[in-house]
Design a binder for these strands. Structure first.
Length: 262
DNA sequence: ATGGCCCGTAATACGGGA
């Protein structure tokens, strides 16, 4: 079984890329982020024609996540509220950043963690609070689902191997700060493993490259798209690879797919 | 280089992205 994750930066603009990639890479599950479309306008038929059932959670213009699956999707839930309750979540489900479904006994979560904008900004603090809610959500979920795969755009480079520059303590860059990296480690401490790092300890293995400054050609990227696996699944994983091919296509997403195999 | 590019929405600019 293969589960892929891909921030497509608008599913409608990238529709041909996604369907072509699925034809060449018929994974069982594809988690999407930044679909940027309300549920009523999500392009379902191009995916159902390829044999994928879509579960979607989107909004106008921004954010939006989805899970496409060849196998039946069960127990679909959107946002934090079903698990954590309105009193805890408040307004944090207004932005559509999380969808969960059970596929062949595996609880699959497609997640788009907030970008965070500038270090210390209001959006940075929003990101930190969102990460706190995610930790609580995963802690609850692990109690019910021992086989858990949380994949998506985390907007966190876990360590300096995952970025093309050197961090400096007096120049905090969002996505690389100690507080964010600690929040990522706090997720791992729940009993999760970074699937990619089970197989590859090398630096310069990126999943995102800025559109500007020919960053992809120069391999000036970040590794911010991850699969976190509960220990039973982590042990079963036999490969985790970054497929840079779609990033080479005309008018690409700035992210490229990452695939884990069990 | 506090830049560059690309998205959707709106509209011939803007916020957002990381």
């Amino acid at each position: 079984m293969k589960i892929a994750t891909w921030n497509v930066n608008s599913v409608r603009t990238r529709l041909e890329h996604v369907t072509n990639w699925l034809l060449a890479n018929p994974v069982e599950v594809l988690c999407l982020q930044e679909t940027k479309v309300i549920d009523a306008d999500f392009p379902r038929s191009p995916f159902t024609e390829l044999g994928y059932h879509p579960a979607v959670c989107g909004q106008k213009s921004y954010n939006g996540v989805a899970i496409l699956s060849r196998l039946p999707l069960e127990e679909v839930t959107v946002g934090f509220t079903p698990q954590l309750g309105e009193a805890t979540v408040g307004e944090f489900d207004v932005q559509k950043r999380l969808i969960s479904a059970t596929v062949a006994g595996v609880r699959v979560i497609s997640v788009y963690i907030p970008n965070g904008a500038d270090y210390g900004s209001e959006k940075y603090l929003y990101k930190l609070h969102w990460l706190k809610l995610l930790r609580e959500y995963l802690q609850r979920t692990l109690k019910d689902y021992p086989d858990l795969c949380i994949c998506g755009d985390y907007n966190i480079a876990p360590d300096d191997r995952d970025i093309h520059f050197t961090t400096e303590p007096n120049r905090p860059v969002t996505g690389t700060t100690e507080v964010e990296r600690q929040a990522f480690k706090d997720l791992l401490a729940l009993g999760l493993g970074d699937a990619f790092r089970k197989f590859n300890a090398e630096a310069e293995q990126y999943s995102w490259w800025d559109y500007r400054a020919a960053a992809f050609r120069r391999n000036l990227g970040w590794r911010i798209d991850h699969h976190l696996l509960s220990h039973p699944l982590y042990e079963k994983a036999i490969a985790c690879t970054i497929d840079v091919t779609p990033r080479q296509w005309t008018k690409p997403s700035d992210h490229t797919p990452v695939v884990v195999e069990f």
